[in-house]
Design a protein around this nucleic acid. Sequence first.
DNA 1: GCGACAG
DNA 2: ATCTTGTCGC
Length: 234
Amino acid sequence: MSDTPDELPAGWPTTEAEATAVQDELRGRVVRDEPGPSPDAPLIAVGVDVAYDDEHDLVAAAAVALDSDTLEVVAEATAVGRVAFPYVPGLLAFREIPTVLAALDRLPVSPGLVVCDGYGLAHPRRFGLASHLGVLTGLPTIGVAKNPFTFRHADPGPLRGDTSPLLDGAEEVGRAVRTRSGVKPVFVSVGHRVSLDRACAFTLRLAREFRLPETTRRADALCRAALRAASADA
DNA sequence: GCGACAG
DNA sequence: ATCTTGTCGC
């Protein structure tokens, strides 16, 4: 009773040159002048994540919708697909997005915010996974990454809520955010239609007792389970 | 040219 | 991301 792998979108980039060209073309469609939804009012926050089985050429994606106030799960959806692109730093979106879109399509609620694993603006060409997903869906998106990527940063203060900027020269393209005192920070950047201040505020609202936002924790667990099921009968 | 490098 | 045992701690 598991999913059949979805077909790849027609015309999906095959080479790195094609992929970077797509990023350069879509980058202009990112909306950065909207503050986005208020972190103080309840909304449906959706976490998306992907797991891989390169042996069987499978990708499983999950979208988990939470009430941002209670952190209760409101809805979940998964999708299985074929690996659409190799892992290349800076081109992660081409590997993850097709299956993530399929999972989002199956989600029976409309997201007020989508939380991605990885970066948005803080990307070599200013168009990371979170920006890309935002442009393709029109939804407000943010990126919360577990590891540093392109930009240098100072270590934020030791307490939950302490932050330090990810700087590209004088421009702040993201922020290292300490979600738990004494634990290494996460790296937040804007995706689409959300300000950096609000992206950081949402991150703290969604990450209360663990380092990572509950959205990404739930999505991570669900996509792994979906992958196990798909690999088992494939 | 040599590393570094989200997931 | 994924491969992987035990281990320290709440």
